[in-house]
């Protein structure tokens, strides 16, 4: 019998299929991320890094100001805490796709299954994203309890800002994941490099006015700049020192929405193109040995 004589047409992927892939990938991602380690040890690893990162900034602040200018301390704590999400999302998405290609060599099998790579990738990286949110909460708690950070949350502003901001960061991560599939060497270092560069230009730990003038356009174009600014306003009821702090709440939210709306279609289109190129060029089962 010819293979074309199929009794029933092949159905496309449904939402239920995508959900099942997503859910399974979450479990897989968590098992790999926690690496079957002792829960206590895993908690220590998870907490030590963000707390130490915030601790460095707090000591720098204390050495110079002797505790004066508490508004700047709050600016530092919130920026340092939220940056965990940017790094967690970007490294989560990129490392998931690279680990599955290079280390576990499973991505080619995922791609040839009837499921889509996209929900799998999102689910696979979710563990790191959750861990990064734990780091945010933990850093904020330490800030409130030990450093006198006063939160005045405005949920009506904070919730949409968080939704938009996290969506924008996921879009950046999706773009990076597709891009890193194309790279021959050192793809593992790209999330750190890009997140590090964004850390510098987004006003995470210092006002962007301090940056050299030629970096200002990049700072204003990045959705992370507006997400951090909007989150500070939603959490602290005041913005950053400097130019950004002078903008109205509505303007900051509008700029966050616009930059997110631009980032999402660009990221999705780029990811689709990167995947198509990866299929054509045989990059899905390539191992770089890096």
């Amino acid at each position: 019998m010819a293979v074309t004589d199929r009794a029933a047409p092949v159905r496309g992927m449904t939402l239920a299929d995508a959900w099942r892939s997503f859910r399974t990938a979450i479990g897989l991602g968590w098992a790999i991320e926690a690496n079957w380690s002792d829960p206590f040890l895993f908690a220590v690893y998870t907490m030590a890094k963000p707390l130490a990162a915030a601790g460095i900034l707090v000591v720098m602040f204390q050495v110079i100001t002797q505790g004066q200018n508490p508004e700047f301390l709050q600016f530092l704590i919130v920026g340092s805490a939220l940056w965990n999400v940017v790094f967690g999302v970007m490294s989560g998405l990129v490392q998931s796709i690279l680990e599955d290609r290079e280390r576990y060599r499973m991505i080619k099998y995922v791609v040839v299954t009837p499921t889509s790579l996209f929900p799998f990738l999102l689910g696979r990286s979710l563990a790191r994203v959750i861990v990064s949110f734990v780091a945010v909460v933990l850093t904020m708690i330490v800030g409130i309890v030990f450093l006198g950070v006063e939160l005045r949350p405005n949920l009506l502003y904070l919730v949409p800002a968080t939704l938009l901001g996290v969506t924008a960061v996921i879009a950046l991560g999706v773009f990076m994941a597709g891009w890193c599939l194309q790279l021959r060497q050192e793809a593992w270092s790209y999330p750190e490099a890009i997140a590090g560069a964004l850390y510098l230009v987004s006003g995470a730990i210092f006002p962007i006015d301090i940056l050299p003038g030629f970096l200002h356009p990049i700072a204003y174009a990045s959705p992370t700049t507006w997400w951090l600014e909007a989150s500070r306003r939603g959490l602290l009821d005041h913005g950053s020192p400097g130019t950004l702090g002078g903008l109205s709440d509505g303007m900051v939210m509008l700029l966050l929405a616009v930059s997110t709306a631009i980032a999402i279609p660009i990221a999705l289109a780029a990811f689709a193109w990167f995947m198509q190129r990866a299929r054509q060029a045989g990059l899905l089962d390539m191992t770089t040995g890096s």
């Binding site: 460095i56 900034l57 720098m60 602040f61 050495v63 110079i64 100001t65 700047f72 530092l76 060497q185 050192e186 270092s189 750190e192 490099a193 590090g196 560069a197 850390y199 510098l200 995470a204 730990i205 210092f206 006002p207 301090i210 940056l211 020192p241």
Partner: peptide
Amino acid sequence: SWLFFEIFLPFLAVSAFVFVYRALEA
């Protein structure tokens, strides 16, 4: 690529902390 990342990544971190000190007028 090693050369780039091993200089660029520490340099990014250095720059961020330099700017924090500048913001604090250290």
